[in-house]
Amino acid sequence: MKIIECPRDAMQGIKEFIPTEKKIAYINTLLEVGFDTIDFGSFVSPKAIPQMSDTAEVLANLELEKTNSKLLAIIANVRGADDAAQHKQIDYLGFPLSVSETFQQRNTNKSIAEAMEQLAQIQEICHKHGKKLVTYISMGFGNPYNDPWDAETVIRFVEELHKLEVKIISLSDTIGVSNPENISYLFGHLIPAFKGVEFGAHLHTTPTTWQEKVEAAYKAGCRRFDGAMRGYGGCPMAKDELVGNMATENLVGYFKNIGLNLNLNKAAFDRALAESSVVFS
């Protein structure tokens, strides 16, 4: 079981700039917990996401000698991938690929066709620099723009990513519209069909629907889950209002209740949970 903690996703929707020192201290606490991966920042245009303009400085001050957690940075184009790939501390580059044409333009200022072309180049950059590419299928469970969506479209996108030898694909419920039925259907079909691919669940959700979503994904075979402390954040490019992230403490509690040992440092987890209230207040 892999838990991916996503302070980047939590921070990027905050309009008031979070001081760099506060980000560094918070992520260093998260690194002590023992999460598989920390989605810590992004190499994107500071005009698009001002909150992430200090990602390189944050990275330079992380205490990586104290952790086994890996680092993931989000990128939106080839230039961002080139920038991120220069940092040896980064293990994964994450790229958002949308099944919604509207959202692809809104999120990365390019068409789906252009995004696929760039993704092929980004994969080459990853191979060259020893990074692994994580592709997020954004709006993977529906969209608010009336763009066409069905499960078979998502499956076709996965087929294209498989041709590019993408080994980690995360289905993203960008606006919180997934339900147990479409979660079960997608993971239940994709996981056995693409045995060399690690599928993840990046589920935005409300406080009342999180458990049924986690349970559906887990029972369908998903073993990679993204979360953010207290469910902070959401995608600022998606809609005018944010649908929060999956709360990490809910994920951890669910897996503990079904008997899984996630090997997390409880004291550090509790400190990070408390600190999150300060960072995002």
Rank of each mutant, 00 (worst) to 15 (best):
Q12S: 03
Q12C: 05
G13S: 11
I14T: 15
I14P: 04
I14S: 13
E16S: 10
E16G: 10
E16W: 13
I18E: 04
T20A: 12
T20M: 14
K22G: 06
K23V: 05
I24W: 08
Y26P: 03
Y26R: 10
Y26K: 08
I27G: 01
I27Y: 04
I27W: 01
I27M: 04
N28V: 07
N28G: 06
N28C: 06
T29Q: 14
L31R: 07
L31A: 08
E32S: 15
E32D: 14
V33M: 11
G34S: 12
G34F: 09
D36V: 07
D36F: 13
T37R: 07
T37S: 03
D39M: 09
D39H: 07
D39G: 10
F40T: 01
F40P: 00
G41I: 01
G41M: 00
G41L: 00
S45F: 00
S45L: 02
P46A: 04
K47L: 04
Q51P: 00
Q51V: 00
M52C: 07
M52Y: 08
S53L: 11
S53R: 15
S53H: 08
S53F: 06
D54N: 11
D54H: 14
D54R: 13
T55N: 02
T55Q: 03
T55V: 02
T55G: 03
T55M: 04
A56D: 12
V58Y: 10
V58P: 01
L62E: 05
L62D: 06
L62G: 02
L64A: 04
L64T: 03
L64H: 02
L64G: 02
E65P: 08
E65D: 14
T67L: 12
S69E: 07
K70S: 06
L72Q: 11
L72N: 14
L72Y: 07
A73T: 02
A73E: 01
